[in-house]
Design a protein around this nucleic acid. Structure first.
Lengths: 195, 195, 195, 195
DNA sequence: GATGAATGAGATTTCATTCAT
DNA sequence: TATGAATGAAATCTCATTCAT
């Protein structure tokens, strides 16, 4: 009879918000943003269509929220992973961290890769999608320079491309891609003194 | 007022078909398949909306036609490019050929990369999109094995990923990407005896 | 923790009911019935959305309640005002009374005028909106006839229209409308022997 | 076989645009803007729902278009009507012209009166709704001053209110309202030398 | 062969109302 | 009594497709 407490309400809200985000991420990742309807998301999340609009101003806002949250997670996860085994050279650690992050949020990466070429979606997303390529390239360049690579800018571009390419190939078929072997080979290559 | 001859008609038809395909390719590449409306295509092509349906059964069929035609072109272009300098080792030739093809059909690659993650679009496309990753990987593997690489399957996967990653980074910002430097570095790396 | 007494509960109920009615009247008057959402009313009243349904069967019922209550008030106020200065002629007293009532319930008049043309809303309101035009016209006609007006029916129609028109213009911009001057002029005109 | 000529197309477009506007005017006038759905308009106009959006950006834009067009018509009609019998005094001519215009566009006046109190609708309409009250008041004031009225500003306000009130009462029940008698009485009153 | 007005299915969005607490 | 999260019917709007010329 007495109304729910503030905590109960918050818990309810967060629960449904999380369900909606999870469902959307799954569906956006699989069918793409445009092909996923609000109805599908609601069904997958097990809620009514209208509920989405209590949490997000619209489908686009939902996408934005997903990006914001996921990007946060990625930063955190990467930092954690990067702090890994201090015995390994930095470049190797970065490579491992990148793929650890990848595996943890497969759907988000699918979504990301699907949206990457769509100028208009990116614009709609506004600042929610950081251009991390600059940051990544710079980080890799520093690590490679420290490791004594001859032309660190070009090598950084190549390594970045390799990581990105492997990630994408893995995302396209995680069940069959020999990710571990590839990662080990990469780590080995970039740990070798002459690399 | 005098009726057009059959040849003239044929030429007109070809002309408008080509205009529609070109316009669609441009727009699909920039905005993505879903975000591009038939109206936009007609406008960009400078024809009426209805005309598209005289040439293609629908928007999806248009996409299919674009893929089919582009893939033909890619095969041809690749073969040409690959036939290049016989003095170079095969792996280097393949690398060069890949990027030559890339630059020739930027819009198509944008489109391709944009669609790659969208299961439902791929299904709609049916057989029009070959899974060339197998072919490419196999080709690379053969070349690498011939060159004496220690673990050719893994190395092939990595090289394929690198090429794909570089291609995508280039497509995302052709004006600034240091493609030539990267290609040279790759060619050099994969021509070295120990690679 | 001690349960509230029946009287306390009753008082709380009355209080929230009154707040809801007041908020709705304000918002209906400003934005119109349709443009005012239940959420807006709850917010303005400082209560939860659901509470409205404990007091009224629905939004429409709320509107009906507002009309019923306001109309009661109008009758009462009018009777009071009309009982005013017995030295003035009846027509003048009616005019003064009308504008006294108008000023007392501005929001209700805004709402009334806003809803007047909407057949469907009026139907939904059912009997809650009396067709007082007949009553008013009849009252005015009697008074004008008593004052010796030549064609009391037509004059009553005109006077009614004038009062209604002035009321509406005043409601539209109470801050600037010269209501007092207009009322005085009307009173004077309709008190003059030849009027 | 050959496509329609530009004139044929224009005629088609104008025809359907006019049908939509007429239907909307009818329905907006009867049920109010908010209660009229796009579906209702399309049905009444005998066209598909989507067609409205080929002519107007949305329901609101349609409303705006109706106002713009109707206001044009009103100005024109008024000028024509006002040019009437030069033997009559100006104030009388204005009165007659006002009611001539009223009768000609009943639906529009219903709509106008229905929307007048809805701040949010008026805002949405932006500049499409001129505040003609100023113009009208000024015109009446000039005419009354020329006719030698003692306090022309107040008298203008009253006459304006009377006209507006009569118009509204008439609009509410055109079948029974004794418009002619009322207009004649008004004309007479405002033609009398002492008025 | 070409046009563009017209269609209508299906998408997004709003909002009165319900319901568990 | 009161709360506000959740519902879902119905609204607005989009856009691939059809059709008369």
């Amino acid at each position: 009879m007495s109304p729910r407490t503030a905590e109960q309400n918050q818990a309810l809200r967060e629960e449904s918000r999380a369900r909606i985000i999870a469902a959307a991420l799954r569906l956006f990742g699989t069918h793409g943003y445009e092909r996923t309807t609000v109805r599908m998301i609601a069904e997958e999340a097990g809620v009514a269509q209208g509920l989405m609009y209590q949490h997000f101003a619209g489908k686009e806002e939902l996408l934005r929220a997903i990006f914001q949250q996921s990007i946060q997670d990625v930063y955190t996860s990467f930092a954690e992973a990067d702090a890994g085994d201090p015995g390994e050279p930095p470049v190797a650690r970065i490579i491992r961290a990148a793929f650890a992050v990848l595996q943890r949020r497969l759907d988000f990466w699918r979504l990301s890769y699907g949206v990457r070429m769509q100028q208009s979606v990116l614009e709609a997303l506004g600042g929610a999608v950081p251009d991390w390529s600059q940051t990544i390239r710079a980080t890799l360049e520093r690590a490679l320079r420290a490791a004594g690579a001859p032309r660190p800018e070009v090598e950084a571009a190549i390594l970045f491309a390799t990581i990105d390419g492997v990630a994408q190939h893995y995302v396209l078929d995680p069940a069959h891609y020999p990710l571990d072997a590839v990662v080990e080979a990469l780590v080995e290559r970039y740990s070798a003194p002459g690399a």
